[in-house]
Amino acid sequence: MNDAIDYAINTVLDHGVGIEITHQRPSFQSCAVVQHNLVIINPNANDKANLPFVILHELGHIVLAHQDLGCVSPAARIKQEHEADRFAAELIWDYSQRLGVDYDNAYNFMQAFGIPSKMFGVVINLMKGIA
């Protein structure tokens, strides 16, 4: 799992984005500060298994130039979250393929990298080469 976390952190840095890891109360959620090109991660807000996905999700907001979620409509917020989720899932899929690890089903892949169940359809398409 530490290798996947290292991969996620290095991917953030490779995109020229800053990353701050802060150990706050669990209620302090990780976030992307798009206007400052910064990802803020609170490991206490997520299970360790979810950290690679969370880190890459927040990077997705920056790479995709999303607006501050407080300043967009609920429909735009949902769309941005889905885009960031997809971005993270695709990067993790690429990472797993470079490792040469084969997963016999989407559930095992998702569990291995802490990908939330709402991403099942996206992961199925990635595994089929449809994404």
Rank of each mutant, 00 (worst) to 15 (best):
A4D: 12
A4Y: 05
I5R: 09
I5T: 08
D6M: 13
V12M: 03
V12I: 09
L13S: 07
D14P: 01
V17I: 12
V17D: 02
G18N: 14
I19R: 10
I19F: 05
E20S: 08
E20D: 10
E20R: 12
I21D: 02
T22V: 03
T22C: 00
H23R: 08
Q24K: 04
Q24G: 01
Q24A: 05
Q24C: 03
P26D: 08
S27W: 01
S27Q: 01
F28E: 02
S30W: 07
A32R: 07
V33T: 07
V33Q: 10
V34N: 03
V34I: 13
Q35V: 08
Q35P: 00
Q35A: 11
H36Y: 13
V39D: 07
I40S: 07
I41V: 13
I41W: 03
P43K: 02
N44Q: 10
N46G: 02
K48M: 04
N50V: 00
P52N: 05
P52C: 06
F53K: 07
F53D: 04
V54W: 04
V54L: 06
I55R: 05
L56I: 00
H57N: 09
H57P: 01
H57R: 14
L59G: 02
G60N: 08
G60E: 00
I62R: 03
V63M: 10
A65H: 14
H66L: 07
H66K: 11
H66Y: 08
D68E: 12
D68M: 06
L69I: 04
G70E: 11
G70N: 12
V72E: 10
S73A: 11
P74S: 08
P74H: 14
A75D: 13
R77V: 04
K79A: 15
Q80A: 12
Q80L: 07
E81Y: 14
E83Y: 14
A84L: 14
A84S: 15
D85T: 13
D85K: 15
R86Q: 14
F87L: 01
F87K: 04
F87M: 01
L91P: 00
I92K: 00
W93L: 15
D94T: 14
S96P: 08
Q97Y: 14
R98C: 06
V101E: 04
V101T: 05
D102P: 00
Y103W: 12
Y103T: 04
Y103N: 10
Y103G: 07
A106C: 09
N108Y: 09
N108P: 02
F109H: 08
F109A: 12
Q111C: 03
Q111N: 10
Q111A: 11
F113D: 02
G114W: 01
P116V: 11
K118C: 13
M119T: 10
F120V: 10
G121F: 01
G121I: 01
V122Q: 13
V122E: 13
V123T: 09
V123P: 10
I124D: 04
N125Q: 06
M127W: 06
M127T: 04
M127H: 06
I130P: 00
A131C: 02
A131V: 02
A131Q: 06
A131D: 10
A131T: 00
